[in-house]
Amino acid sequence: MKKHHLSSLILRTAVAGFFALLFLMPTVLTLSNSFMSQAEISANYGVIFGSPAEGAYMSERVNLKLIPDMVTFRQFSTVLLMSPDYLFRFWNSVILVVPIVIFQVLIASLAAYSFTRWRSRWKEVLFFSYIILMLMPFQVTLVPNFIVAERLNLLDTRWAIWLPGFVAPFSVFLLTKFMRRIPVSYIEAAKLDGAGEWQIFWRIAIPLCRGALYAVAILVFIDYWNMVEQPLIMLRDPMTHPLSVFLSRINSAEIGVAFAVATIYMIPSLLMFLHGEEYLIEGITYSGGIKG
């Protein structure tokens, strides 16, 4: 019996280890490859990304390497100091995403408070339509967004992406689920003490939902940090595109730099993840159960 337990533990550990490796490998390889020199990248991946410079060594087969032969920060310094193109696109991403995160969370927490505090029949209907909107794929919601942006002359400006982003219903849904768990007695007590609604919102609802707000902010951030569809449709000038779109257009001559850019691009979201993982997991857990 004992032996059976041990062997199944070993089996489980092996399976888990295998999956862990699969899940980590792409990220770790991108990170480690960003510390390789252009020559090493060309040698390893020449068969994939095309011929390197004249006379350079190129391995006949692809060569996945975890540890660089020689660690160099050359690619990073190229990106940060010599290629304004990448930094410019990175800045495009930041300026598109950060306002959306801030305003979506702010507007959604106000709405969530209203949905929690004053319930009525028509508000349930409204909340239900928020859920429907949230479930609709981009292919559907981008059409109305586009029509409005065109009418209001917002096309080719950031507002065409900002404004729909500010009011996207996902955060409202998640924050309402959180706020409905605040005991009514807390709010009643504050009310008796003479607190106004605005005070209850800022002093009680918001602090109690701090973890939820962080989780929502992380989820909204990664969603928009990844955006591809909106800029392709709303911003016709490629100069204004975020790095998420631009990265795919890097040509093979710059493949070494590309790994460094890819690494830089994933640092903000990975840091947020490592810092707020507990909140994020709680947030994901609450997002389960549309019905409740």
Partner: peptide, 26 residues
């Protein structure tokens, strides 16, 4: 580990995916 990929932007991982699945890839 299992959760981390959701926080990696797709654009960052495209290169490795090409290295893996290219005809001459890993």
């Amino acid at each position: 580990f299992f959760l981390s990929p959701m926080m990696v932007p797709v654009a960052s991982i495209v290169l490795i995916w090409e290295v893996l699945f290219h005809q001459n890839g890993a």
